[in-house]
Design a protein around this nucleic acid. Structure first.
Lengths: 346, 346
DNA sequence: GTTAGCACTCTCCCATCGAGAGTGCTAATC
DNA sequence: GATTAGCACTCTCGATGGGAGAGTGCTAAC
């Protein structure tokens, strides 16, 4: 089911025009604007065929045509050409990016903001993580009599904390001794290794180790831990939200921050960019939105995902190019930061 | 400038009615609805006087009256009565609240969500902090050759982290020795004490101590570190946002998350609730919103602020009661958690 | 001080109408 | 057979113009 040369070109033009103006495009206007070597009547015939096959649709008789999900899909797969980003845009992005401090969360947050601004839509970026977390170091700090703060450093400088309640008060010296011992025994191990451990431990030590294991398991199990959403206002500014009705709807959808559910992070292919258009999304509420997701990170190391969310009426080629560039940039920066952290002995 | 008994009552009724219906209230309708012992003409006269004095206003001739900022102000100060919350609402809130885990951020986040839901508006809660942070423990963990993760535990189980780059590679053993030494020297001290310290330190140790001091100073200097915003959708659902225009405006305002600027956390009185109505807010964009702020926390210990944000058309008595209750609850929970942490020796 | 009465004013909702843009079909043309 | 000119038809959109309804402000009477 491919389209004839002319219909392809026509579909491209309709999409370009519709994306630009947000109003259905008519046969006459498109002929005039692009000085097509056909009359509007011919275009009308072609449009009728495109509609028959589901690539475009009518909001009502005697309005122009607008692309359907299928139309966008065909466009994305067969018609559009990803262009390389203009040099100065790349520079700008790079520049904004390098303002981030050392904190990983800050990076990710900034990446979301920069991406959102660059594509003029909303953007989500997850904090990168490894497939299986490994323990690097444990620290126990007494807080008040029986309450102890458990601080865990995992590989790639991920920090976790939890307050534990001990059955009896314990001196800081003892806590330090205990954490030293636990570090010696368990440093470098994964959650599954902890579970299998045969080490001779006191009851209190078991208490701690169990907490550690649970935290690590939770970290491994959960999809992406955390993500940053930026640029919702870019989306709200678009003409489809003039009514306000839809604005609230969008907000409702996003405020239940379960972004990972909205965005198919799981299903993205290892190495490529995934585009989900309109009704292709799982959530029904996303019917009018497209999501473009890219993985980023280091092969075999930390990985995350970044996504752009906006109305289906979106500049796909530019958005995809930008996303790709940003993902590469993030990967590169991660590499520079963690790249050669020695792998743990198993 | 107090109002006569009757005008006060009338103002109360107008506010009650307007808050309820979101439409300007007319003399006739109010007489009928509340079966006032006067004719609508009398009420009209009284309304004219109230308007003259600025308590209510006209959107245009021949529309009903709506309260002005000044009207709300008078109402909040002189007319309304704070009611105690109904028992079962208290129970509900308490119940929702006790689902929080041990993590402090989680508490605060949950508090914002519960508050937002209870008052049907947006809510902001800051993470509580002490006036002057004190160092409890330092830990240094090697990440890759010259990169070292500095983990600091401050009092009240606040955790801070930063990646340091050392001029040369250092073994984990050395790092542990160094952190032990620094802990002995500096545990329990405030940032200012660190600055004054005369201790004999290696260059590397100075490097670490300076970083520690900077982080602590930043923590002490900044207003409130972090805050959670919840319930924006409650606000967007209100009829004043039907047009969508204002929705975007609100979002723009909130998305630049500088909540502390919007909300006068600094200026709140030590022990009470502060109400800022409409144009009383510093930001011009907040002209149509009211902010109600309450401090919470332990006297002399950790403190934070919680606030409700919504249109000036707001149920002030209920909102204030709820906020007060929530603030007390938070304080109580904080007390139970940190209450008797021994104070550091200076 | 209070009230009935009344003219007046605005908004809001509807219906109407014409302009504009666009379609679909037919018949003629290349 | 593909293309096109022509034309009737359709639908939206914006302007226009009444009512209906709600409310005000004023005056004169109670």
């Amino acid at each position: 089911m491919t389209l004839t040369e002319r219909r392809s070109r026509l579909l491209s033009l309709i999409i370009a025009e519709y994306v630009d103006t947000a109003t259905p495009v008519g046969s006459d206007s498109i002929v005039r604007k692009y000085e097509l070597p056909f009359s509007s009547a011919t275009i009308r015939n072609e449009m009728a065929r495109l509609e028959e096959e589901g690539y475009i649709s009518h909001p009502h008789t005697s309005a122009g045509r607008m692309p359907s999900d299928k139309g966008y899909r065909y466009y994305v797969e067969a018609l559009m050409q990803e262009r390389d980003l203009p040099r100065e845009l790349k520079e700008t992005i790079r520049h904004q990016f390098h303002q981030a401090g050392r904190d990983e969360d800050e990076w990710v947050h900034l990446a979301a903001a920069v991406l959102a601004r660059a594509v003029q839509n909303a953007a989500v970026v997850t904090v990168p993580r490894t497939a299986e977390s490994r323990l690097k170091r444990i620290e126990l700090v007494g807080i008040q009599e029986t309450a102890v703060l458990l601080v865990m450093v995992l590989h790639q400088a991920r920090l976790k904390q939890q307050v534990l309640i001990f059955p009896e008060a314990v001196e800081q010296d003892q806590l330090t001794t205990m954490s030293n011992r636990l570090n010696e025994l368990f440093s470098g191990l994964a959650a599954s290794d902890l579970a299998r451990s045969q080490a001779q431990l006191t009851q209190l030590e078991w208490h701690v180790v169990n907490a550690v294991r649970e935290i690590m398991e939770a970290a491994d199990r959960g999809g992406y831990d955390e993500s940053y959403l930026e640029g919702v206002r870019n989306v709200l500014r678009k003409p489809e939200f003039a009514s306000g009705e839809k604005a609230v709807e969008l907000l409702e959808m996003l405020e239940q921050r379960n972004l990972t559910r909205l965005i198919p992070f799981r299903q993205i292919s290892r190495d490529g960019i995934t585009v989900r258009i309109g009704a292709e999304n799982d959530e029904d509420a996303m019917r009018d939105y497209s999501v473009i997701v890219s993985p980023y990170g280091l092969p075999g190391g930390v990985t995350g995902a970044m996504a752009v969310v906006g109305p289906t009426r979106m500049r796909y080629p530019e958005t995809i190019s930008t996303l790709r560039f940003m993902a590469d940039l993030m990967s590169e920066m991660l590499g520079a930061h963690y790249g050669d952290e020695p792998e743990a002995h198993p």
